[in-house]
Design a protein around this nucleic acid. Sequence first.
DNA 1: ACATCAATTAGATGCTTATCGAAATGTCTA
DNA 2: TAGACATTTCGATAAGCATCTAATTGATGT
Lengths: 97, 97
Amino acid sequence: MGPAKRIELSEEQIHLIAKALADPRRMELLRQIGRGTDPVGCSSIRDCQQVSAATLSHHMKELEIAGLVKVTREGKFASYTLRRDVLQAYMDQLAQI
Amino acid sequence: MGPAKRIELSEEQIHLIAKALADPRRMELLRQIGRGTDPVGCSSIRDCQQVSAATLSHHMKELEIAGLVKVTREGKFASYTLRRDVLQAYMDQLAQI
DNA sequence: ACATCAATTAGATGCTTATCGAAATGTCTA
DNA sequence: TAGACATTTCGATAAGCATCTAATTGATGT
């Protein structure tokens, strides 16, 4: 399989994605999550980035509502994976400018 | 000729570009400026978008310091062109995530 | 049930920014 | 030079947001 379908973004989602990418910390989070293909847990993230749990939670929620990451919950843990299809859709939008 | 050289962006410029793209009004400005290849004047812009001169000036400065538009001044007029090479460099950065 | 730990939410604080009207700057023309 | 016009800058206001600590929720293991 793979990125079967091309995604269409609403103006609203474009705005959410752009805002999500406009914070350096979130950019760094995305890079870390996108480094591999496996889901990345909160603790792994906090090992690499100096940030409080509350702030991390806030940023991950922003990334999630932007559609840029998928959250997987197992028990008390949360893991994140980059949604490359959504990122690609945003790049397609920029290319259309 | 054409877009001869591939542009490298600093982290700082990446941040400036991301912030510039995160405002819906600026996004719309970019789209309008990028529509054709000719420079676009302030009055053309204000014909299409309802915005005060002061606010427009502010946004165009943000786009300029982000490197996304080139400003051409002739007498009392200012015109803008989209810097596609910079936009492309930003897209390349996103693709590297 | 209780203690512990991961993650989220609540509440507060300080910084950034979008917006406008008014004033200033710069340019053109009569 | 004086007036008209385009753009920018100034000053103020309001909204948004990043960040933290503290409190809460929810799951796990003893």
